[in-house]
Amino acid sequence: MTVSALTRPGERDRLIVKFSQIDWTFCLALCLIAGAGALMMFSVAGSSWEPWAAAHLFRFGFFFVVMVILAMVDLRVWFALAYPIYGLGLLLLVAVELVGDVRMGAQRWLDLGFMSFQPSEIMKVGIVLALARFYHGVSADNARLSWWLLVPAAMIAAPVLLVAHQPDLGTAMLIALTGGAIVVLAGLSWKVIGTAVVGFLVSIPPLVMFVLHDYQRQRVMTFLNPESDPSGSGYHILQSKIALGSGGFFGKGYGLGSQSQLNFLPEKHTDFIFATLAEEFGFLGCASVLALYAAVIFMALRTAALAHSHFGRLAASGVTATFTLYVLINGAMVMGLAPVVGVPMPLLSYGGTVMMTVMIGFGLVQSVRVHRYTEVTSGKGAFV
């Protein structure tokens, strides 16, 4: 089978060929991470599949199929839909501002009657697609430093401000950092990067004092000194540190973690599931799961490097950046190296919306791999 047969419509066995081009080692690593999450949920539920482990596996199985289906979608279709998906996400974020549901003091959800969802999750994929399409048609000189930079800056700022206003600081930060990563990978001048970093560091004190909500400011203060309120705002971080440290090298054993089993550790199946893993399986278990994450990131970046189109390279890199940020932020959060911002550990933590975002993103990554030889025009996404 020739390379051209992978992309030319009309080839009799094209679907079989595309299916064979999926990186199944990559898929195995995803399954192992999700499986580890299900095992931990089974443990913290008192050796029961309900209420978390069974639902977690069902959701992963469903979205795994979705990922495989999306991998078959031609890369030029993704290119054509990039701006519409971004525009839809932006409209839904505006709709949240107008008619969104308020839960736990935040207005983040749209209720459709039969289901509710957070439009910010759509934007995590939309910002990657839109920026990848924008930079696909921009010259290297303009990507490095020009007035064109105002366009991606506005594309990033619009959803970040809308999400931050909900308020959802963790998601807003993820969108901003993902967008920034794509801009940097597109060839942004190091002078601009250095200036932006310095400007951000200088702006942190006024942002904390005058922009953040009171509870967000409290999280920052708690991060700096969690011992100041051990039974209140510092409780999450202190209990997480206890769980991490008590696991030692080999852990206490499966189902024997006192912090999680006795409910000292809050959000033990979602935001702090990595601390649960550390307590029961120790440093060895944590290192093994982190090695799986590293393998996923490496294979996704390798896929980006293999793509012949600039759009494919940036799209795969952007999805990988989002996934990497999830891992780094959650890991830092549970270790007390970052404020608690409600960012889960992807595929390991319980939760359908983040799993949906991650698996759709990896569907795009696998589409880049399957259609890595496809040439994408810089026009309106027409097939060539």
Rank of each mutant, 00 (worst) to 15 (best):
V208A: 07
W148S: 06
V327L: 07
F26R: 01
L30N: 04
V44W: 04
Y373H: 13
V73F: 12
L337H: 05
L314M: 10
F298S: 10
T171K: 03
A176Y: 05
D13T: 07
L112F: 13
V365Y: 00
T322I: 04
I242P: 01
A181I: 00
L149M: 14
L301T: 07
A321N: 00
W24K: 13
N263K: 14
N263R: 14
H236S: 10
F42T: 02
D23Y: 02
L207N: 02
L32Y: 04
L238C: 07
G361W: 04
L314A: 05
P205T: 15
G179R: 01
R76L: 05
F223S: 11
G37S: 12
A294Q: 11
V128H: 01
G255Q: 12
T270Y: 12
M356C: 15
G194H: 07
F323I: 01
P84T: 15
G381D: 03
G245M: 09
G351T: 02
D168N: 11
Q166F: 04
I182M: 02
A154D: 04
F210W: 14
H236R: 14
T178P: 00
R14G: 06
V138K: 09
G100Y: 08
L177H: 12
A275I: 15
T322E: 02
Q259K: 08
V102H: 07
H213G: 04
V319S: 02
L348D: 00
R313S: 09
M104S: 10
L185S: 00
M72K: 13
L347T: 06
A132Y: 00
A287G: 05
W78K: 09
P9W: 13
F210I: 12
G282R: 08
D229L: 05
A106L: 07
L161M: 12
H308D: 10
A332L: 13
R8H: 10
L306D: 10
V343F: 06
L224E: 05
M299Y: 11
S260N: 15
Y373L: 11
S228E: 15
I69M: 12
P119Y: 07
G381N: 04
I360M: 11
G331R: 09
T222V: 13
Y215R: 14
T178L: 02
T374V: 12
V94N: 06
L364G: 01
V202P: 03
S258C: 12
S203H: 06
A294M: 14
I360E: 01
I85M: 11
E280I: 05
V384I: 11
K241I: 14
L244G: 06
F272L: 12
T270E: 14
A196W: 03
V319N: 00
I193E: 02
V128E: 01
L75K: 08
T222F: 05
L188A: 05
C286S: 15
K252W: 11
W78E: 08
S378L: 07
E279G: 06
F249L: 15
P119R: 04
F274V: 05
V65D: 08
K241R: 14
L161K: 10
V376D: 02
T353K: 08
A305V: 12
A305T: 10
M333L: 10
L212S: 08
G363P: 01
F200N: 04
S120C: 03
L98H: 06
L207K: 02
A71F: 06
G170T: 05
L98I: 15
A34D: 09
T7E: 03
S47M: 15
A153W: 15
L348E: 03
T195S: 13
I273N: 04
L150Q: 03
D141G: 00
L188R: 06
